[in-house]
Design a protein around this nucleic acid. Structure first.
Length: 582
DNA sequence: CTAGGGTTAG
């Protein structure tokens, strides 16, 4: 009697326990009363130590060692604890030990925790082994286990296996669908993520905040504005707008789709704002080249008492770089350390290389690489090479190229860039050398493309595209456009050495129409007068297309928003928001 | 009360 009430008292103490110190006192009581072998008590203790934030895995390890015949649930606690710790490999060791001892069988919980550990520890082989055991022991129909399998395979880079398991699941609930979508989204397979959504709709599991957040992230990445707007409406209608994740994802989506006003409106309405909220705005302004507004939001963020992090500074520095705020950018770079105790990472150095590079201070940019943590980072050299393209600097461009070769990071895009620099310097032999280099080294090429969204449909174009169904119409329209912009001063650059946009163009089809021109022509032909054209492309805008687009915005009185690989260009009345500084 | 899902950068 006495004993039972003591036990329940100890258990209730454990329930309310919120620190390791208290826990140790309770443990001492357990030992004093001779209850250390009472399984309810020791399991509870161990479970608490393993899972709770205030607990300690080391402590639960000690407790574990004192239990002579651990039950499945006890093993599970250890595996679970380590699976969410910083040493997920330990979880796998515990599972191995459990199998080796062989006294207790793994259950559906064991596999859920183990799979999570395989994901975190990037243990592909173990993941496959677990998959086999799951089938053998008979948990292959368990919806939670399968969902974990899907995540674990994706985390280990095997999207195909994940997709097969997902498709083979006898039952899929809302969480399973959300997992599949977020996995695609996080793996960068945004088209797949958006495609899954339509299948999900027909399976009648509904949608919640989690679904929205992943889908919005994918919209942001591919620039699918009208789909994003649909999601916004859905969030409004279902009362999801109070969720800070949803608000953040919406801000980011609007910013990345070129609509900063609507991003701002969502921001203003949010009741709770966290560091993601502020960062999304700061990064948004940054990639649109509105550095002064990035700075303004940064200041307000500090006043609101939100601590900036390294992403905040990436947005801020990007804004400074694209608006030519060189001194401010350098200043903020230094305050990272001095005021905010943040160590600038390689990407922050990249921003500074870009900042100096764009401003034409190529020597400074080169110095910056020298003072960075790594002279072997391809991104830094590539950034310098892009700057050399802007400022038509052959010498430093060649330095960047030699370094890319040295660190064996050279890709086709780099060759195309340098070829462009040579072309603008009228150095045909240089262009030819780049062409040869790509061929001889067998360097993989990225085809350039542009797309435009018209009536909720995406139309995608490549250089010299003849595959589009409306090819005739597009080329006729393009001829007409060229005629009209020449009348107001556009000079076609075809008479010069063609500046290649993509490797394909450099290798085989010089002088063809860039994908961007085709997308714009199609947009002009198919949308009502006065409406905004939104173009998304995977490469940078070339000088000729940039000039061409400026003239179109004037000749046709259209606002045109182009999102290229790194930033936005807003064309209006013959001018671009980047002030020709990109 | 032993399980699985979310945002910025890259």
């Amino acid at each position: 009697m006495m004993q039972d009430s003591n036990i329940s008292l100890l258990l209730s103490f454990l329930q309310g326990c919120n620190s390791l110190r208290k826990l140790q006192r309770i443990h001492a009581q357990v030992i004093i009363n001779g209850y250390q072998h009472h399984s309810a008590i020791s399991n509870k203790l161990l479970n608490f130590c393993a899972i709770s934030i205030s607990g300690s895995l080391r402590y639960s390890q000690l407790l574990f060692n004192q239990i002579d015949k651990p039950q499945t649930s006890t093993w599970n606690s250890m595996i679970r604890g380590y699976s969410q710790s910083t040493s997920p490999l330990e979880a796998i060791f515990y599972y191995n030990k459990m199998m080796l001892v062989g006294q207790s069988r793994p259950d559906n919980f064991t596999f859920s925790f183990l799979l999570k550990a395989c994901d975190k520890a990037k243990a592909y082989t173990k993941c496959r082994e677990a998959h086999g055991s799951i089938i053998r022991i008979g948990y292959a129909r368990d919806v939670v286990v399968c969902t974990n399998l899907v995540r674990s395979y994706v985390g280990n880079g095997s999207i195909e296996a994940a997709q097969r398991i997902f498709d083979g699941m006898p039952v899929r609930d809302l969480v399973s669908w959300n997992s599949m979508i977020s996995c695609y989204s996080q793996a960068g397979l945004h088209d797949e993520a958006l495609k899954i959504y339509s299948r999900m709709r027909s399976s009648n599991v509904g949608m919640d905040e989690f679904t929205l957040v992943s889908l919005l992230s994918s919209c942001a990445h591919v620039g699918a504005l009208s789909f994003g707007v649909q999601m916004h409406r859905f969030a409004d209608e279902n009362g999801f707008m109070d969720n800070v994740f949803v608000g953040n994802a919406l801000i980011d989506m609007y910013a990345k789709c070129g609509n900063l006003d609507r991003a701002r409106r969502v921001f203003d309405k949010m009741r709770k704002r966290d560091v993601f909220t502020w960062n999304s705005m700061i990064v948004g302004f940054g990639v649109h080249g509105r550095g002064d507004e990035s700075i303004s939001f940064f200041r307000q963020m500090l006043i609101a008492g939100i601590q900036p992090n390294s992403v905040t500074f990436l947005g801020l520095l990007c804004g400074c770089s694209h608006q030519g705020l060189t001194e401010e950018g350098v200043e903020y770079f230094h305050t990272m350390r001095s005021k905010f105790n943040l160590k600038p990472g390689i990407k922050h150095y990249g921003c500074l290389v870009d900042l100096f590079g764009r401003a034409g201070k190529l020597e400074k940019a080169l110095e910056m690489i020298g003072s960075s943590p790594s002279m072997d980072d391809p991104v830094l050299w590539r950034t310098l090479l892009s700057a050399c393209k802007i400022h038509r600097n052959v010498e430093i461009g060649e330095v960047a190229m030699r370094n890319l070769l040295r660190i064996e990071a050279l890709n086709a895009g780099d060759c195309v860039l340098l070829a462009g620099i040579y072309a603008e310097a009228r150095d045909r032999q240089g262009v030819a050398r780049m062409r040869k280099l790509i061929r001889s080294e067998g360097i993989k090429t990225t085809p350039g493309w542009s797309w435009i969204e018209i009536d909720d449909r995406v139309h995608r174009f490549v250089v010299g595209d003849r595959l589009h169904l409306d090819s005739e119409e597009i080329y006729t329209k393009l001829k007409e456009i060229i005629h009209r912009v020449i009348l107001i001063g556009y000079v076609e650059q075809e008479s010069l050495v063609p500046v290649p946009e993509s490797a394909d163009e450099l290798l085989e089809n010089p002088g063809l129409y860039h994908s961007e021109k085709l997308a714009i022509a199609f947009g002009l032909a198919r949308t009502p007068e006065g409406s905004i054209l939104r173009i998304v492309k995977n490469l940078r805008v070339c000088r000729d297309c940039h000039s061409f687009t400026k003239f179109i915005s004037k000749a046709f009185d259209r606002k045109i928003i182009v999102r290229d690989r790194v930033r936005f260009h807003h064309f209006k009345d013959g001018l671009c928001s980047c002030k020709d500084y990109w």
